[in-house]
Nucleic acid binder design. Structure first.
Ligand SMILES: [Mn+2]
Ligand SMILES: [Mn+2]
Ligand SMILES: [Zn+2]
Ligand SMILES: [Zn+2]
Lengths: 141, 141
DNA sequence: AATTAACTTATAATGATTCTAAAGTAGAAG
DNA sequence: CTTCTACTTTAGAATCATTATAAGTTAATT
């Protein structure tokens, strides 16, 4: 239900405006993780509502959610920033050819040895990206 | 010796000009991996040679080396692109506070389980980034 | 309804990267 | 050594993502 969204907005210090609730619907009203760029999110909103939304509002809202842990930024090559509605620590399969980005389930990956850390430092976050491509690439003849 | 550079330039399809040889000296005339951004590389060259180099030349040359496998691009959050003179498949320790980026030796890390891949796909590359921070962060009271 | 801080928006500014086109140079050929 | 030409360098413009600005709009409180 919609109160769910309002909570996320309120705890992020944001008033539930029409625009923000639309953003929430796209981001959080789904079962699966959603991986997105700002500009794709903007397009989806405008298609859904048949009206314009300001780019600044999309940036501001997504950043507020990021700062409050409801979305996270993903490190990938390429010009635009990708965000992820799964803000848990998790990893990705990335297909550069198609642009597909899939969550890896925690039970499907295991990092069993980590390097020694510099004195006085501790691990903050681990990000693993497995890039994939078609079997047909660089095939032996 | 310098012939080493010339080879890398030639096999990248580039004439060994004064500017390109300078870039090579900075990138390849060292024992350790070098992690850099375009604009830091440009500054280093200009300090070393006490003369200007065009930004376009730096971009063009680094991209040529990237396309020929002599440097690779690293996926990190942040506005600028990082490159790496270690073009082998390897992983990184990253300290966002200081900007330090360290190679992880292959024997110091082990990914012992990888997820099933989509039909018809194979692994192209695996990138692991371990972000670190000071022990003092978020300490229990 | 009145008040006000928060908000949305169009637009400008910024910063990284890429493009352009004119002037300079490496290397081949004579 | 000189000429020729394709390749290269360069300054500046263009592009594109992102951030800042500031003027009008709205949510929330009284
Ligand atoms: Mn890139
Ligand atoms: Mn970022
Ligand atoms: Zn994800
Ligand atoms: Zn490295």
């Amino acid at each position: 239900m919609k109160n769910h969204f309002i909570d996320r907005l309120r705890t992020s210090g944001l008033r539930p405006t029409k625009q923000r609730v639309e953003i929430c619907k796209i981001l959080f009203d789904r079962k699966e993780t959603f991986h997105f760029t700002i500009d794709r999110l903007k397009k989806i909103i405008e298609k859904n509502t048949k009206s314009k939304i300001s780019l600044a509002t999309v940036y501001n809202t997504v950043h507020a959610f990021k700062n409050n842990g409801y979305v996270k930024e993903i490190s990938l090559h390429g010009n635009k920033t990708f965000f992820d509605t799964n803000s848990e620590n998790h990893h990705h399969l990335y297909d550069q050819e198609t642009g597909d980005l899939l969550d890896i389930r925690n039970e499907d990956i295991l990092l069993s040895k980590v390097p020694p850390l510099p004195k006085g430092k501790k691990i903050k976050k681990i990000e693993i990206t497995i890039s994939i491509e078609n079997n047909s690439h660089n095939q032996k003849k």
